[in-house]
Design a protein around this nucleic acid. Structure first.
Lengths: 197, 197, 197, 197
DNA sequence: TATGAATGAGGTTTCATTCAT
DNA sequence: CATGAATGAAACCTCATTCAT
């Protein structure tokens, strides 16, 4: 039907705008991102975004919804996957350390911001960053039992590991000659017990 | 004397405003920081900052000047101090991991920003973030020779270590129940060769 | 009595401030004049003017009152003085062309301004710049009869002469190397019939 | 073509804003002119000027550029034109005494101002108000030789004549019932030797 | 639907006025 | 009385949003 085609086109546009917005939000921050930057990145005119989104706020809200979903999925994945704690942490780490993973940066910016749209605040309650930490805490505790992970308060280890990882993602935006992200095993040295030879 | 007392008061005020501004800049970013936030944080009226600083830009510029000096000092310190590479890295790490160390966060924001005041751009040329990395690279290379540090491209290790550390500082602003920064030795697991038992 | 001495001191201060204000108003215009400029010119602190005048507006109002009085006096003088029309115009011209005659410049600025304090507006009604022109018109008409002045509509001649003169006063503020005001006889060439030889 | 039409519209708007600004600057002075006055005069919203000019300063700078060009042209004109000194001065005088000639008033305000944008200061160096005076001085000297002009220091005569003329332009803004500018020959009485009969 | 010009609320800065010392 | 630091309303400027084409 006609409508389907129309809807399809409309969805394409929305995705195009969201992709552009995510990139700019991640690079410039929530306030540093101007609507005309999003428009330029999406190669559309200044006014067009408003046919697809009510406001800058709405774009942000949708992006955060996706980010939360992505994050929840990532944690569901490692909760449910088979394998040793080390393998689970490696999977999670690789998930986060993707070159084009802007969602985690966005989440971080959102958590740092203080004046958020109400709807975003509501969304964040469904996310409970503590849940992420608790999941990882459980895995680490298990790994400690099996002797794979270093000793220490598992919750603290989880928080330190996650914040290091997310911080690293954030910092990668700085333009340093020849910089590339480390691989998962480098970061995992923080919590994995060294191989006794 | 009168003059001394006046000058003293003036300097106190300037410091008060800079302290407030540093805190807000670190939390909200360069653009996200509004002058009225600085004023509120410093508990003064909106207009008063302008008796002490020509503009928001001038406040930022002074803060960055201090941040660069602090960073340069930290690296000079570990370059000149006696001791093993491990001890040097531990000193540097502790220097960075101070609860109230907003300067590194500010530096990071400055390096991420795209439209900086000219004077700040000039200042940054005197800083050369590469210098920081090179200093650490040399120490790591030496530590690799003496077997203290893990193998791998020393420059890459330096960059990864520094960005993890700075990212961690940045992320600590997020309000997580019971979160405190890790100590130096936790982070140093990233590059220090484990003690063979 | 004590009070007399106090009042005397108070009046001195008021004069000092008014002198300073007149100078600055004439140089910088009504809006261009900042209260701190007046204070600096009067060599007093920023706040002190407010012990002697309710506001910037009040200072201006008093200055204009004086300017109007001065202008009225000048015209009364030439109306009543004995002598030929030429001598009367010369007296008036010299009155205006005084190096330190800021009052005429102030009057002009006031007449150009559009947002004036109400009280000033009231004052201006007592001045009626037309009165000045009418006085001069009468003198010129008389001088035309006696053959001293050039032909033409006497009112127009009066307006042109006065505006040239006042404009000249205004322009003298421009810093031109070696500039000094012309004397009365130069300006009077505009309306005085040349001496037949 | 599309682009041409767009550019054309843009230029029209810029001209509209400049016209409005010139009128207001001439009437209210550099500091007395508020952006909202320009907007109201141009019948546009407060923010729109900023799509066409970076700042109030830029508007002023462009206007001054034009004023300087106009002034330079006027003096080039009389330098190069054939004719007697009297005819040259008449041409110049008529050039200045145009009802809608706000440029000379603007120039005067600029020369009176004390805090000018840097670029304007640079521009003024290309203008050298002394050049204007020197040009006129030369013409007057020549006219004195041929007996057309009155005796006296030609440079002084030039300065007095010009300042009277410009001051007159400035003063015309005052709203006097039935006032109109004099013609060139009236003003030229200041320096032209009277016709002996 | 798509454009980009236009609007106006909000952030930055200035300065008349007040107030603690 | 005198000072100059402090205040806050108003001016300059930016940018999210609307609207004419």
């Amino acid at each position: 039907m006609m409508t389907d085609s129309k809807d399809h086109l409309r969805d394409e546009r929305r995705e195009q705008i969201k992709r552009a917005a995510l990139k700019v939000f991640a690079q410039r921050g929530l306030i540093g991102t101007k609507m005309n930057m999003i428009a330029r990145e999406a190669q559309i005119s200044d006014g067009l975004s408003y046919r697809y989104f009510k406001s800058k706020e709405e774009i942000l809200t949708e992006l955060i919804k996706e980010a939360i979903e992505g994050s929840n999925e990532a944690f569901a994945l490692i909760t449910n996957m088979p394998g040793s704690p080390i393998e689970k942490v490696r999977t999670l780490t690789n998930e986060i350390l993707q070159e084009d993973n802007h969602h985690f940066i966005l989440m971080q910016q959102v958590m740092l911001a203080d004046e958020l749209p109400n709807e975003v605040v509501e969304l964040l309650k469904t996310h409970d960053s503590a849940a992420m930490i608790n999941t990882l805490t459980a895995i680490i505790a298990k790994g400690q039992h099996s002797g794979e992970f270093v000793e220490g308060n598992p919750k603290e280890l989880a928080m330190w590991y996650l914040t290091s990882l997310v911080g690293l993602m954030n910092i990668q935006k700085i333009d340093i000659e020849g910089y590339q992200l480390p691989d998962a095993d480098f970061m995992m040295r923080l919590i994995v017990k060294p191989n006794p030879i």
